[in-house]
Write a protein that binds this DNA or RNA. Structure first.
Length: 721
DNA sequence: TTGTTCCAGCTTTTT
DNA sequence: GCTGGAACAA
């Protein structure tokens, strides 16, 4: 047994955590301190040294990506496939439990998982049937309300009627929503967690089984767990103290979606015999970056307390750039990236981070204009696309005729002459008689109250679904999906659409068929569930790799939130302005402000070698010119770690601005970032930076042969090429 | 049924 | 000031 392979790559603190006997354990892992490594090696240790069978280990993460990575690394370390290991997201594991114990959880065998888009549509429709004005009851707010209740483990039946009208109405909606989901066999994301919790809470034999089965439970990113997730973990590990959690209170940035940082404190109360291990050695960033980040986070109260350090040396200072406006900011960042690439850096090692998605545009425009390849994270995922959702809706109806959300989605897509009137009648019947839309449609036809044309159209739709169900009954998943995509009329619909938009949609549908072909259901066959249902659940739970790895080396653009867990050699933290970052909505509330500060901490600690902070002195926001003050976070970094960069010579002042002095302009007029120049002694090079003005003006040039040099413009006699 | 116009809204996001 | 969705007209 080769335990050196497990232990050698670890430092003392990591080794302590990995080899600790089974007990409640809290590993406080700072950014870049080897958090995943500890989890992976811990699990490998338990299997290989402690002799635990793989199926007795559970590891829970928040994203599919993290789960996948962990499984891969464990298999790599153990050098064997680890299918028996239960590694997955909270939602994935909850889903698995509910499939296995659908009856005990009071769910139909064919229940379908709704993603948040589906949920929103269901709510919109519900508000309609309740005759509620959706400007007074914005669907998003309702959705937020319902999910917030579920995240806290509260069902409508637990709530008491209050005098508050708003509250009362919300409760009424919540109740109707629950009824509707029940009737349609629909389960939203929050419901997965809540049901799984209730399953363990109410069915002692089920709980007992899993308590025995899982001898070790591991949790990644513990600071992001919400109330119901933690309650579920507690049930599972009650009285055994076999809960091993890894997290970082300083990186808790999801409080706004229900994450409870308090779970870390509660953990220490609930598990009396727990041990805490801090991982503070950082293997990612330079000393300067870490010190600056430490200084910022030190402004937060009530931390567990942790200070990152490295033995990798100080590195360069952090660069601070005060841009004239947001255009100038983008220009500066893009020029720096070009210089980085000129010096041999990879574009994919450079990341532009921002607080809000709206900020990406200015960078995209500049990158596009200069022909620098880039990739924006976030945005539409594969399974979120309308054409894919439509195809999936057909498939869902095959599996579950009562799925109202899907019924409504495709009843007239592609258009088949079923208008608003017919649909309204169906909804009415469904509501009055407590039926699904499908059943209500049949009732409506039998009433013979409609025109022949409408009746035929409706019959046509029902027949289409029945036909498809019959034809695909005996087919495998791939053939099923293929046939449905072909016969649903969706392909024809999108082919008719003009421009390449429609073409892209057809391609996406082909891709869906392909995904079905490649779908690997072996992993979950034990769930004795049809392949189709497994595939549909997969589609809801894994919204799809939204960034199909394009092979071109490209600059990475993303929000600070999506940067968590990633690292880049060169990082630009843009828009460091009051009102933007920290965001306006957070400045009045201490806890929200502290979350913004943690976000800043997360952003800075993404940088491995060089960190740039930028802000604009003027910014166009919502169509208005604003003059924000630099972010307070900038003041929280001691000056010794910061170097101010100037590039004013290249700023394009608006026409109304005071004319700059002729002399200073003359000197710098032709010198711009990225300008190719030639020097008598050093040869050809590219300008990287400009500093100072007049006689003091200096340029930094990257020479092909001589390397990077600072030169006084007054003496250098550079020739512009 | 489709194209146009109007209007609210505007952090962060995974499942 | 732009975008996406909904209401509206043809």
């Amino acid at each position: 047994m080769d335990i050196t392979k497990i232990l050698d790559p670890l430092n003392d603190a990591q080794r302590l955590a990995v080899t600790a006997p089974s007990q409640a354990m809290l590993v406080l892992a700072g950014a870049g301190s080897g958090k995943t490594r500890v989890l992976v090696h811990r699990i490998a240790w338990q299997i290989q040294v402690e002799g635990l069978p793989a199926h007795s280990i559970l590891a829970v993460t928040f994203t599919n990506k993290a789960a996948k990575e962990m499984r891969g690394r464990i298999e790599n370390l153990l050098n064997l496939p680890a299918q028996a290991l239960w590694i997955g997201t909270f939602h994935g594991i909850a889903h698995r439990l509910l499939r296995r114990h659908a009856k005990e959880a009071k769910l139909p065998e064919t229940f379908q998982v709704m993603d948040s888009g589906d949920q929103l549509r269901v709510i919109k429709r519900l508000l309609n049937t309740l005759n509620m004005d959706d400007s007074r009851w914005p669907p998003r707010e309702v959705q937020w309300y319902i999910n917030a209740q579920k995240d806290e483990g509260i069902r409508a039946k637990h709530m008491v009627e209050t005098a508050d009208i708003h509250q009362r109405q919300m409760l009424r909606i919540y109740r109707s929503y629950e009824e509707l989901c029940e009737r349609s066999g629909l389960v939203d994301f929050a419901e997965l967690l809540l049901r799984a919790h209730e399953l363990l809470r109410d069915k002692t034999d089920v709980l007992d089984f899993y308590q025995r089965r899982f001898r070790q439970v591991h949790v990644d990113e513990f600071q992001d767990t919400n109330t119901i997730q933690y309650a579920w973990l507690r049930l599972l590990t009650e009285g055994r103290d076999n809960l091993f959690v890894v997290g970082d209170d300083d990186q808790s940035i999801y409080g706004w979606r229900g994450a409870k940082i308090e779970n870390i404190y509660n953990f220490q109360k609930h598990y009396q015999n727990h041990q805490v291990i801090k991982l503070e050695q950082n293997y990612r960033s330079t000393g300067t970056i870490l010190k600056a980040a430490n200084n910022i986070i030190a402004n937060n109260a009530g931390r567990m307390g942790k200070e990152l350090w490295t033995d990798a040396g100080e590195g360069d200072k952090i660069s601070l750039y005060a841009a004239f406006n947001e255009q100038d900011e983008a220009y500066f960042v893009v020029e720096r990236i070009r210089a980085w690439v000129n010096e041999g850096g990879l574009r994919s090692d450079a990341a532009i981070l921002y607080r809000s998605n709206a900020q990406s545009r200015q960078f995209e425009e500049k990158l596009m204009a200069t022909g620098v390849p880039y990739r924006v994270y976030g945005g539409l995922r594969f399974f979120d696309r309308a054409e894919i959702k439509n195809a999936l809706a057909f498939l869902r109806l095959l599996s579950n005729r009562d799925d109202d959300a899907s019924f409504e989605r495709v009843i007239n897509t592609p258009t088949r002459g079923i208008g608003a009137k017919t649909l309204d009648d169906i909804r009415c019947i469904a509501r009055d008689q407590g039926l699904s839309l499908w059943a209500a449609a049949i009732v409506l036809i039998n009433q013979r109250s409609m025109t022949a044309r409408a009746t035929n159209a409706l019959i046509g739709f029902l027949e289409l679904i029945k036909q498809l169900a019959k034809q695909t009954e005996e087919l495998g998943l791939y053939e099923k999906v293929k046939l449905v995509v072909e016969k649903s009329g969706l392909v024809e619909l999108y082919q008719k659409e003009k421009m390449d938009k429609g073409e892209e949609k057809v391609e996406n549908l082909e891709e869906l068929v392909n995904a079905a072909r490649l779908f690997n259901f072996d992993q979950d066959t034990q769930e004795n569930l049809g392949e189709l249902d497994m595939f549909l659940a997969h589609a809801a739970l894994e919204s799809g790799d939204n960034q199909a790895d394009d092979y071109e080396d490209s600059v990475q653009l993303m929000t600070l939130h999506s940067a968590k867990g990633l690292e880049f050699k060169l990082v630009f933290l843009s828009g460091m302005e009051e009102g933007l970052f920290p965001s306006q909505q957070s400045v009045d509330d201490v806890s929200r402000l502290e979350e913004e500060r943690r976000l800043c901490y997360v952003g800075m600690t993404r940088a491995m070698r060089q960190l740039y902070l930028t802000y604009a002195e003027s910014r166009r926001l919502y169509g208005r010119e604003s003059y924000p003050r630099p972010s307070r976070f900038l003041r929280e970094i001691p000056g010794e770690y910061i170097q101010e960069v100037r590039m004013r010579a290249t700023v394009s002042h608006p026409v109304t601005a005071v004319q700059p002095k002729a002399s200073s302009l003359q000197a710098t007029g032709s010198y711009k970032l990225g300008q190719r120049v030639s020097h008598a002694k050093f040869g050809e090079g590219v300008i990287l930076q400009l500093e100072g003005s007049g006689a003091q003006e200096r340029v930094q040039v990257n020479f092909k042969q001589a390397g990077v040099k600072w030169l006084m413009l007054a003496y250098a006699k550079l020739e512009v090429l």
